[in-house]
């Protein structure tokens, strides 16, 4: 069964059809690159898959949950890296990661391991995130994602704001997640870089999928979706 199954899905931002009839299937263990111009609908597609944007019509099933009827259930099993940081400015790196990890049923140990996985400087661990650079905040957001260990990773421009080392870490995270059986959707304008971690490229324009191509030489691992799908960081 597909992790993401969309048929003729329309989603509205106000009256504007951000998604205007999307057909898409993503299988377990795939890493899919979403590309397209600004305003094409990439972020809306990720938000739909996260259960944050309701389908106005069509058939939308993510991780077995019908988004037309039950969006809350899917949210527990996805992790999203968005343009916003999803962090509380006055909490430290550790407190933020620990809070969101515990909210997802994780433990402080998983939060610690996620921070270490993102190679966040230990001197920054107890600093309020409001004082951090954009790149370190991005790493903290990624640590939150890792600590949640989602089955479906939704990454919106994951390399933005990161230095070379941070970008390499993101690539490693995606590979580890796929190896662990999770599914990854990456919206990115950095096509050359993201093509090295994806097995398939979806092109979106005007709110519809206009091209769907495998990346030559990159196999698509297929297997049953795990209970929790991220890299085992604990």
């Amino acid at each position: 069964m597909s992790v993401v199954h969309l048929r003729a899905v329309v989603a509205l931002l106000g009256r504007f059809p951000a998604l205007a009839g999307v057909d898409l299937d993503v299988e377990s263990g795939e890493a899919v690159l979403l590309q397209g111009p600004n305003g094409a609908g990439k972020t809306s597609l990720l938000r739909l898959c996260a259960g944050l944007l309701a389908p106005a019509s069509g058939e939308a099933v993510v991780l077995g949950h019908d988004l037309g009827r039950d969006r809350r259930s899917v949210r527990r099993e996805v992790g999203m890296l968005a343009h916003a940081t999803f962090l509380y400015d006055d909490l430290s790196v550790y407190e933020n990661v620990c809070f969101w990890a515990r909210a997802a049923g994780g433990s402080p140990a998983e939060a610690e391991a996620a921070i270490a996985r993102l190679e966040i400087d230990t001197r920054l661990r107890d600093i309020p995130v409001v004082r951090l650079s954009t790149g370190q905040r991005r790493r903290t957001s990624l640590a939150v994602l890792v600590a949640r260990r989602p089955r479906l990773w939704l990454l919106d421009e994951p390399h933005a704001g990161l230095d070379q080392a941070g970008r390499d870490i993101v690539d490693g995270l995606v590979r580890d997640a796929v190896d662990a059986g999770a599914t990854v959707l990456v919206a990115s304008h950095e096509l050359d870089r993201t093509r090295t971690i994806a097995s398939r490229v979806i092109t979106i324009a005007g709110g519809v999928v206009v091209a769907d191509q495998p990346i030559p030489g990159r196999s698509m691992p297929v297997g049953p979706a795990p209970e929790r799908g991220g890299p085992d960081v604990a």
Partner: peptide
């Protein structure tokens, strides 16, 4: 701030 409303919705709480 910083999309935390969405983050709360995504948290599953």
């Amino acid at each position: 701030a910083d999309g935390n409303r969405d983050a709360l919705r995504l948290s599953g709480i």
